[in-house]
Amino acid sequence: MWALAVLALGLAIGGPGSSIGFDFARTFNPAYRLGTANGLVIMGGFGGALLAIMLIGIVVDVAQGVFGASPFMAFRLAMAVQVPMIALGVWGVLSTRRATRATLHDEGVHLDPLHTALRRKIRSRRRENP
């Protein structure tokens, strides 16, 4: 059950995470390289998915062949292979976020914390719709 919860959380983070990748590619590359940058972001996502599929298959084969696990248990074990991959992806997003914010700060762009930006958005909506 724990693996299912972690995988569901990882899938929920994956969609917005891929958008962050596209945003980084758009923001930090010159216009004439945007096609290449977007292609690399897309290939990173598909490459990660194919790597996960391959590792799941290997773990199922090894668990059944070498350790004699039942197909159900082998599949449960194999699906847990995604947990470190998801953790690595989340760590990558968070670490590049810090580096990106530091770069933007050095360039003179000051970003508000999330709670400040959300508060400002809520206030502006209240002014528009009294």
Score class of each variant (00 low, 15 high):
Ile86Gln: 06
Ala63Pro: 09
Gly68Asn: 09
Ala12Gln: 12
His105Gly: 04
Gln82Thr: 15
Gly47Thr: 04
Gly68Cys: 13
Ala8Tyr: 01
Met1Val: 06
Arg98Glu: 13
Met54Val: 14
Gly47Phe: 12
Gly108Tyr: 11
Val41Met: 03
Val109Asp: 01
Ala78Lys: 06
Ser124His: 15
Ala99Cys: 02
Met1Tyr: 08
Val59Tyr: 07
Ala117Gln: 08
Pro30Lys: 14
Ser95Asp: 08
Gly47Cys: 11
Arg101Met: 13
Val90Trp: 07
Arg33Lys: 10
Leu34Trp: 01
Ile20Lys: 05
Thr116Met: 08
Met1Asp: 13
Gly92Tyr: 12
Lys121Phe: 06
Tyr32Cys: 08
Tyr32Gly: 08
Ala87Lys: 01
His110Asn: 10
Gly15Cys: 09
Val6Glu: 04
Asp112Lys: 11
Arg127Phe: 04
Pro30Ser: 13
Leu4Ser: 12
Ser124Ile: 00
Ala102Gly: 07
Leu34Met: 06
Phe67His: 10
Gly10Ile: 03
Gly68His: 13
Pro16Met: 10
Leu7Arg: 08
Met54Glu: 12
Leu9Tyr: 10
Leu55Tyr: 03
Leu104Thr: 04
Ala80Trp: 13
Val109Pro: 06
Trp2Thr: 09
Ala49Asp: 08
Asp61Gly: 06
Ile122Arg: 11
Asp112Met: 04
Gly39Met: 06
Met1Arg: 05
Ser124Arg: 14
Val90Cys: 09
Val93Phe: 14
Val83Thr: 10
Asp106Pro: 00
Asn129Lys: 09
Val66Leu: 11
Gly45Cys: 06
Arg33Gly: 07
Gly21Ala: 11
Leu4Pro: 00
Ala117Arg: 14
Val83Cys: 02
Ala3Gln: 01
Phe75Ser: 14
Asp112Phe: 03
His105Tyr: 04
Met43Ser: 07
Gly108Lys: 01
Thr96Phe: 02
Ala31Ser: 12
Ala49Trp: 11
Ser18Phe: 15
Arg26Thr: 04
Gly47Ile: 05
His110Ile: 13
Arg98Pro: 03
Ala37Ile: 02
Met79Asp: 00
Val90Lys: 00
Gly68Thr: 05
Ile58Ser: 02
Pro71Val: 03
Gly68Ala: 07
Ile56Cys: 03
Ala37Asn: 08
Ala25Ile: 09
Gly10Cys: 05
Ala87Leu: 10
Met54Leu: 14
Trp2Pro: 04
Asp23Arg: 13
Asp61Ile: 03
Phe72Trp: 12
Val60Lys: 00
Ile20Phe: 15
Phe24Thr: 02
Trp91Ile: 09
Thr116Arg: 06
Ala63Arg: 04
Ile58Glu: 13
Thr27Trp: 01
Ile13Asn: 02
Met54Asp: 08
Ala69Tyr: 10
Leu104Ser: 05
Asn129Phe: 15
Arg127Ser: 05
Thr27His: 02
Ala74Pro: 10
Arg125Pro: 01
Val90Ser: 05
Ala74Cys: 07
